[in-house]
Design a protein around this nucleic acid. Structure first.
Lengths: 166, 166
DNA sequence: AGGAATAGCATGGGATTTCATGGTCTGCAA
DNA sequence: TTGCAGACCATGAAATCCCATGCTATTCCT
């Protein structure tokens, strides 16, 4: 994978729901939208999911189409397939980056995750996520509670494993 | 592994956050960036982590992609995997060496580890680290406290094990 | 060998471009 | 006809590019 979403940053959300996309993310979106016409701005898919999701997950066109390919390999009519289609097809929207590098989040989506004033962007490889900053903070600590084989206090690098060839 | 980061050195950090990379490290970065186009300067990934980390860990493109391969082998959804992705994907940035062999550290990163005026570079095999010099001093002694099977006063070479050839 | 020429290195400064963000205006639709 | 979304314009701050300067370790020449 040539370009990956990497890094984190905070951006303001104005009254119209406009948010700047981190500049480095724009490069990835451009690279991941093969169908983009010259001079046009890249498209992307925002997956918002149901009430349990408290983030917006953003896919390049290429990434979302890989997801769809996988879904199509599952048995038609299986619950798994239906659930995945609902998430990635139904509970998602297609949009595009605007002239100035921003994207517009409809009021509905902002309300869904409680976005107001500021947004937190987290790069995550072939997708990036948009969070209400407070939610991200809370979630990161709550989600990774102590466990038999996980110590939230430790530096995560210890889980990479021993030698070069583990 | 052909090239390894080896040695330590001090460099100035100017008001724009520019720091010279030790010359010998540049060779390693070049060798570790296969995708680098002719005449271009090598890319690298700086992992900064959360508030507990007081150093910047720098990976060659090859080293970071080995890390990512390892992460992908862990079970999807496991805490370990999530924590590792957060560290190596989200809490990191891609950058590149500039024309004159420097890299620029954004204000955010400098503040995070208290860098100002000078930086300490420590080679560490397939990565190198950037520290605020004072922090390095302090940390090196604090981190390696006495222990049942470790004596901070001893020369570490005694822990290499038996003879020259295991 | 002595000294000059060279090349790589660490560092600085200014000009230029890109970013993030805010505002206005217009048209379509409810 | 009012609300809202989209296109267009504006601006200060931050990041990038390009050029410049001493230094040092080496090599080259005589």
């Amino acid at each position: 994978m040539a370009h990956r979403f990497r890094g984190e940053s905070h951006h303001k959300v104005d009254a119209k729901g406009r948010v700047s996309i981190p500049a480095s993310f724009r490069r990835v979106l451009e690279a991941g939208d093969a169908n983009r016409k010259e001079g046009h701005h890249p498209e992307l898919v925002i997956v918002y999911g149901d009430h349990r999701r408290r983030k917006l997950e953003c896919f390049t066109m290429q990434a979302i189409s890989e997801v769809e390919d996988r879904i199509e390999k599952l048995p038609r009519g299986s619950k798994q397939r239906k659930a995945l289609q609902r998430l990635y097809n139904t509970q998602s929207m297609l949009t595009s980056v605007d002239e100035t590098g921003r994207l517009v989040l409809p009021a509905k989506l902002r309300q869904k995750i409680g976005l107001e004033g500021a947004a937190f962007f987290a790069g995550n490889g072939d997708t990036f996520e948009i969070w209400k900053p407070e939610t991200y903070e809370a979630e990161m600590y709550a989600e990774l509670g102590p466990d038999d084989d996980f110590d939230p206090e430790a530096d995560p690098s210890i889980y990479l494993g021993g030698g070069k060839e583990g």
